[in-house]
């Protein structure tokens, strides 16, 4: 009834699969280029980013944290990566790139394979989840993320339950109808300022 305990292997396998798909995608791209008789200028390899749908969730009066979500499309022909985010201290003390991930029952740390920070101490897991069916009881936790790759010709979506910008130590509640300005720092494209509308739900 429960998901099998996570080992490093599935992660590695997924990663390998992903790498393989990336290769395939790359191959497709090249193939497409051939078919189209090199319509794209060969020498001009650069990411071309567009950030859209930026929004921040309204925050309760007493909450000290907030989240911003957005979509980054890259229709250029080189990868880029989101490597940092800044916010005015009038909004929050600081902003960080985070990802919410599911933790296996018992917090065995299996999915830490290949990652450079454990984040949580696994020693204090409470409870015995998932007996007799139900929803499984697995924990969710946030991890800081150093680098979010925006692949050439692809996009990355920061959305609830996944990647997000966490606003720490909010200076004031995020109120619907207002907006929050963020400076996104990209590895190749440099800084980009985006305005996130504050709203109760995703646009």
């Amino acid at each position: 009834m429960r998901a099998t305990p996570r080992t490093r292997r599935p992660v590695a396998r997924t990663a390998a699969l992903l790498a393989a798909s990336a290769l395939l995608l790359g191959a497709c791209g090249d193939g497409g280029g051939d078919a189209d008789a090199t319509t794209d200028a060969a020498g001009d390899v650069a990411p071309r980013l567009e950030v859209t749908d930026a929004w921040a969730r309204t925050s309760p009066r007493t909450a000290d944290a907030g989240a911003v979500y957005l979509r980054i499309a890259n229709d250029g022909d080189a990868d880029d990566a989101l490597v940092g985010v800044e916010v005015d201290t009038a909004v929050a003390a600081r902003a960080e790139l985070h990802e919410t991930v599911a933790v296996e029952d018992g917090g065995d740390g299996g999915q830490d394979g290949g990652m450079d920070d454990g984040g949580m101490d696994d020693g204090g897991a409470q409870g015995d989840a998932g007996h007799g069916g139900g929803t499984g009881g697995g924990m969710m936790e946030m991890r800081p993320v150093d680098r979010i790759v925006v692949p050439a010709g692809g996009e990355v979506v920061l959305e609830p339950g996944g990647l997000h910008v966490m606003l720490l130590d909010l200076a004031a509640p995020l109120e619907a109808g207002s907006s929050v300005e963020l400076t996104l720092e990209f590895e190749e494209s440099g800084e980009q300022v985006v305005t996130a509308d504050v709203r109760d739900e995703a646009p």
């Binding site: 009834m1 429960r2 998901a3 099998t4 996570r6 599935p10 992660v11 997924t14 990663a15 699969l17 992903l18 990336a22 990566a81 990802e99 991930v101 599911a102 296996e104 999915q111 394979g113 290949g114 990652m115 450079d116 998932g130 069916g133 139900g134 929803t135 499984g136 697995g138 991890r143 993320v145 150093d146 680098r147 979010i148 790759v149 996944g162």
Partner: peptide, 23 residues
């Protein structure tokens, strides 16, 4: 690392989906 993280997250989401299906 970002790409690997996404892979791990995708795996985790898949597991959650499986767990939910079982439930």
């Amino acid at each position: 690392p970002g790409r690997l993280r996404r892979a791990a997250a995708a795996g985790a989401v898949a597991l959650v989906a499986v767990a939910a299906g079982c439930a």
